[in-house]
């Protein structure tokens, strides 16, 4: 009890902070139910007069929500799957296999984490636009729109994650060599050892890494905005909602935007609440959230 001198003040501080954290979310939900002329007018009312669902119908119609959802789901699934696969493959090689150049490759992986993402927006976009033999481009990357014509453009720059490899490698170092050696003596090839022994033992970490990657990919905005500007067919949820609010009169559209936001935030919020222990462990490991 040495720390517990002022629980009342402590409760007051923590509860006030929690209210300040939650109120914007409640305001989002409340606004999404407000009818025309109810939002953006004075005086401000927190609660809507009636719980009107028409904003949700309008959001589904005006935003073309099914297409946005599909694009978000495909991009997120591809990114998460690829990060998990490539991290566990490379992590295993770096943790448990001996080969010339291992130190060098490991340092390379570490150094990839040093470069901030903003350095890559411009070159990544130009590389995708000038991707040879894609989207009408010739061998030298001229003439067409390159990879930006495809939904792959949303996922490609995020398919491998240096931090994911590092994290997996650190975790796999803890798997005892004797187990792997025994499997090899039994005649198991390296691929079998990886898939049947190493991956199952790494599962808790892979759940954490997968969840972090999923949330990041689902919420990604800047890159998706760039790709959607080049090709509106691959627009994701955050981009679609942002563009709607940019183009239409905010006084009337805000409730519709909020309805769209509620729908887009729900899946990831549900996943977080369900698996929050894993997610929070991931934030502890990365710290860069």
């Amino acid at each position: 009890m040495g720390r517990g001198r002022f629980p009342f003040w402590a409760y007051l501080v923590v509860a006030t902070g929690a209210v300040l954290t939650v109120v914007p979310f409640l305001d989002m939900v409340m606004t999404s139910f407000k009818g025309p002329g109810e939002s953006g007018t004075l005086p401000y009312h927190f609660l809507p007069k009636t719980f009107d669902l028409s904003n949700y119908q309008a959001a589904v119609r005006q935003l073309n929500l099914p297409v946005l959802f599909r694009n978000s789901v495909v991009a997120t699934a591809v990114i998460t799957g690829s990060v998990l696969l490539t991290s566990s493959l490379a992590g295993y090689a770096l943790a448990k296999l001996r080969f010339p150049g291992r130190q060098f490759v490991f340092r390379l992986v570490l150094s990839t984490m040093m470069f901030p993402p903003f350095l890559f927006f411009i070159p990544h976009f130009l590389i995708l636009v000038h991707w040879p033999l894609a989207g009408g481009n010739d061998l030298l990357g001229r003439g067409g729109a390159g990879l930006t014509v495809s939904i792959a453009a949303l996922a490609v720059p995020f398919l491998v994650n240096g931090f994911g490899i590092f994290l997996t490698r650190q975790f796999m170092l803890g798997i005892p060599d004797e187990v792997l050696e025994a499997a090899r003596i039994d005649g198991a090839g390296e691929f079998t050892v990886w898939w049947r022994i190493v991956v199952p033992q790494t599962r808790p970490l892979l759940v954490t890494l997968g969840l972090l990657t999923f949330v990041d990919a689902w919420n990604e905005y800047i890159w998706a905005l760039l790709v959607s500007t080049a090709n509106p067919d691959v627009m994701t949820l955050p981009v679609g909602i942002q563009l709607l609010q940019d183009h239409v009169d905010p006084a009337r559209t805000m409730p519709i935007v909020m309805a769209g936001l509620v729908l887009s935030v729900l899946p990831v919020l549900a996943l977080f609440l369900l698996l929050q222990k894993h997610y929070i462990r991931g934030v502890m490991l990365s710290g860069l959230k």
Binding site: G17, T21, N219, Y279, V283
Partner: peptide
């Protein structure tokens, strides 16, 4: 306190 962290910047 974690809710804002898992929410997209657009929201």
């Amino acid at each position: 306190y974690f809710l804002p962290i898992v929410t997209t910047v657009v929201a």
